[in-house]
């Protein structure tokens, strides 16, 4: 794999130098495919090579139940993943959030919901942390769970999570099942 990587980098360098030294439009026919080749080379190295790696199975990477899958779709649809991550990194910042995420954990996650922002807490190991009812109420309106508090300079507000009161009963139930299945 590393040989392939090095060969790819060499090929890229040659195209790159060609591009720098020839600047007349005559060579367009050669250089435009060359530019295309550059992106394909990098694609092969950074997207296809990793795909060849075997992913060891883990306890977390198990299929979801029918209802949890439905809940997962709602999770994706409502954009919960813009505010919540589902990845625990092996660094001090994430210490105490639960087991570090392994590639195998995501075997049945498609589309992935790793997330890019922690406006809300990480949900990788949420299952079992609260009762189902807690989730129902929290989704209906997150504010009562985190009421305003008296701070040093007056009242301090709580959660910024949006209310999901518009979800139908089944949708909420499915979502809660999904949340509880995250172990």
């Amino acid at each position: 794999m590393y040989t392939a990587l090095i060969l790819f980098i060499l090929a890229g360098s040659i195209i790159c130098l060609g591009g720098i030294y020839y600047k007349r439009s005559i060579v367009l026919g050669i250089l435009v495919p060359g530019a295309m080749l550059l992106i394909i080379i990098a694609f092969l190295s950074t997207a296809v090579l990793p795909y060849m790696e075997k992913i060891p199975a883990t306890d977390k990477g198990v299929p979801y139940s029918e209802r949890a899958l439905l809940g997962r779709q709602i999770y994706v649809r409502e954009g919960c993943w813009y505010c919540h991550t589902q990845q625990v990194r092996p660094i001090r910042t994430d210490a105490g959030l639960g087991n570090v995420s392994q590639p195998g954990d995501y075997q049945y996650d498609y589309p992935h919901v790793l997330g890019t922002e922690r406006t809300g807490p990480d949900l990788s190991h949420l299952g079992g942390k609260y009762e189902d009812d807690w989730h129902r109420n929290h989704l209906m309106n997150p504010r009562p769970k985190t009421p305003e508090e008296e701070g040093m300079a007056g009242k301090v507000k709580g959660s910024v999570m949006p209310p999901f009161s518009y979800l139908s009963r089944e949708e909420t139930e499915a979502l809660v099942t999904y949340l509880q299945s995250l172990r």
Partner: peptide, 20 residues
């Protein structure tokens, strides 16, 4: 769209493709 669970690629690779 509307899919969930087992996809054509595992979740990790999906994330890689997404960020690629």
């Amino acid at each position: 769209t509307g899919l969930g669970g087992r996809g054509p690629v595992p979740g990790v690779n999906d994330a890689m493709l997404n960020w690629w």
